[in-house]
Structures are given as structure tokens and as C-alpha cells.
Amino acid sequence: MKENTYSREKQILVSLITSVVILGCYALYVYHRYISVNPGIINDLKFWGKAFLVLIPLSILAQIIIHIVFAIINKIVTNEDIPVLSDERDKLIELKTIRLSHWIFIGGFLLAMGSQAAGMEPWIMFLTLILSGFTATIVSEIARIIFYRKGF
């Protein structure tokens, strides 16, 4: 039982850590490269547009590369394969976590729109959007681990 459970959980943990590291590194890079040099840029819509356009493909690419590297290292160290089969239970867990992340992101989206309706600066909206997307990812990955461990 355990090796299969652990493989799934390890996969989810890698995904979780990757998400944190990518966003953290990217936020630091953007801050040092642009915001610390020109603080006024945070209200520039073009800046946020570019930031989003780079962040999304970058995180997808990084996730793919890190998962491949993890699968290779895991095979070398533990001699066990990462489960590729996704059965009805996996799909049900995936659906449940997608629904959870969807609601969290919708909440963040409403907050972001609310900030604009309340007359706040544009950077608050963009930051709220990024943070809600990030929170949705983290919560859904944690929920996946809980569903795998405790059932539902």
C-alpha cells in the first residue's frame, strides 16, 4: 500500500514545492529587476500584462521539467516508478480539488474586482489575482493529499 500512496504524495509534494519556489523566485526577480528600480511601474498595466504572460508559461514549463527530473531521481533512488495510471478514484479526487481551487480563485477574482470598484490602485487587483491563483493551487494540492490519505 505504502509505496503507491507515497509515490502519489511525493508527486503532489513536488508540485506544491515547485509552485512555491517558482512564484517566490519570479516575484523576487520581478521585484529586483523592475519594481525596486522604478516603484511607479506597479501601476503600469503593460508591466502587469507582461508579468502574467511570462509567469504562466514559465510555471508550466518549470513544472514539467521538475516532474521529469523528480521521476528520474525517484527511480534511481527508490527504484520505483511514478504511477502513470489514473483511475476513477484519482479522477474523482482531481475533480474535487479542481472545484475547490475554482471557488478559491473565483473568490479572489471577486476581491480583485471589488478593489477596483472601491477605487483602489490597479496593482492591488493584479496582486490579488496572482495571490488567489497561488492560494487556489496550494489549497488544492493540500486537499489532494488529504483526500488520498483519509478518503472522502
Binding site: M1, N4, T5, R8, L85, D87, E88, R89, G151, F152
Partner: peptide, 18 residues
């Protein structure tokens, strides 16, 4: 055609199969 983890979950009453 499922994973061993799913069989374990069913046996332990943690998951009701389709």
C-alpha cells in the same frame, strides 16, 4: 484496471467504487 491504492481504499471502506 485500477491502482492498488484504490483497492486498498475500497477494502478499508474509504472509497465507494462506481
Amino acid at each position: 484496471g485500477v491502482t492498488r491504492q484504490t483497492i486498498i481504499a475500497i477494502e478499508n471502506g474509504k472509497y465507494s467504487p462506481t
